[in-house]
Amino acid sequence: MSHKLSHLEQLESEAIFIFREAVEQFENPVILFSGGKDSITLVHLAHKAFFPAKIPFPLLHIDTGHNFPETLEFRDELAKRYNVKLDIGYVQDSINRGTAVEEKGLNPSRNTLQSITLLEKLEEGKYDAAFGGGRRDEEKARAKERFFSHRDEFGQWDPKNQRPELWNLFNGKKAQGESFRVFPISNWTEMDVWQYIKKENIALPSIYFSHERSIVNRGGVLLAESPYNTLLPGEKYEKQIIRYRTLGCMTITGAIYSDADTLDKVIEEVAAARETERGNRADDKRSEAAMEDRKKQGYF
């Protein structure tokens, strides 16, 4: 037997180590569950970290009220499958309370309002650590994020004043009211996540795969027909073969034209996007979707 772990095995081991470490260091952790592939992967890793015991913390989902029905269905089924408690924060509740104000305009996005509801829920649930699926490869600012990321009592991150993180010694000490965000898959790239999903045979919501859907092309962003979206003059919905690269609100999440209907085809597409998007100018739609990716994921 060779005493060598592949990079995915090493990343998995690291993520499991982080989960176990955080559960011991914090009193009341929670997984931020967005419904996307990264948070689904997190739940899978948490399951592996504590098996045969069940996952020793709940999932927290912030529901904007504008989700794809497929996302919510998948979420409920997943919570049942892992026998884990599901805590849901509704953006609508924050709006009703007056702590969040709905955007004006034709297609109000509730994307920025999510953070308000999130902080309210963390406080309400007395969660002192929240696991997130953030990865350092997502954007420049994230490249400096720690595994154990300290937040002040207002839930704010101070990137210029972070604790140094050495070897695999993680310092989760904090004062009353402060909290941590914990990122077990910090060192993974998008490709690593996809390959791990394949290796572990992790189930994903159907809308990650190619399907027919009624959409409108608005300035290069392919928006799904939904009760939260109003057509502009001259626009109309058309049936197209598309899939989603990320899952978020129906009001802002753009689809891509794709006939990738299996995991292998999706992975091929992810790999190819990297290559063709380099150097020569890829079409705007593709690049628009990539931008969207990062914005969305930046939320957690």
């Binding site: 772990l5 592949s6 990079h7 490709m191 390959q195 091929e268 790999a271 990297r274």
Partner: peptide, 11 residues
């Protein structure tokens, strides 16, 4: 990027 053999990569 090549995807074949990705599962056996080293770190």
């Amino acid at each position: 990027m090549e995807t074949n053999g990705y599962l056996d990569m080293d770190l």
